[in-house]
């Protein structure tokens, strides 16, 4: 069971959240190319290791959180608010 330490609500089970994928991709601004939008929507590093990802605490504070989680151990190392950039361990 992944448990996420929500900065607002405290430690909660994964079922309270909805996953929304890679949080490192940034939506291109107005006038950006099709290529840029393609990368935003489809291009993923899909790392085996630390992954910064969106989790939406829908059952709790309704906030999108940036979670740093390892894709082999499932360890959650850091949880940040949407506008913050959490530190990502090197390995």
């Amino acid at each position: 069971m992944i448990r996420i330490d929500c900065p607002w609500c405290g430690v909660r089970d994964e079922v309270e959240f909805t996953y929304r994928g890679d949080a490192t991709v940034v939506r291109p601004g107005e006038g950006a190319s099709e290529e840029a939008f393609h990368d935003f929507v489809y291009k993923r590093a899909n790392p085996r290791g630390w992954h910064v990802e969106w989790w939406y605490h829908g059952a709790g504070c309704r906030q999108f959180l940036k979670v740093v989680r390892h894709t082999m151990t499932h360890e959650v190392r850091a949880v940040a608010r949407a506008t913050e950039m959490p530190e990502v361990p090197a390995e």
């Binding site: 069971m1 089970d13 994964e14 989680r69 082999m72």
Partner: peptide, 13 residues
């Protein structure tokens, strides 16, 4: 399970 992983194990939900 609904999140990225390379581990061949899932969770209780």
């Amino acid at each position: 399970d609904g999140w990225n992983t390379y581990a061949q194990r899932g969770n209780l939900p």
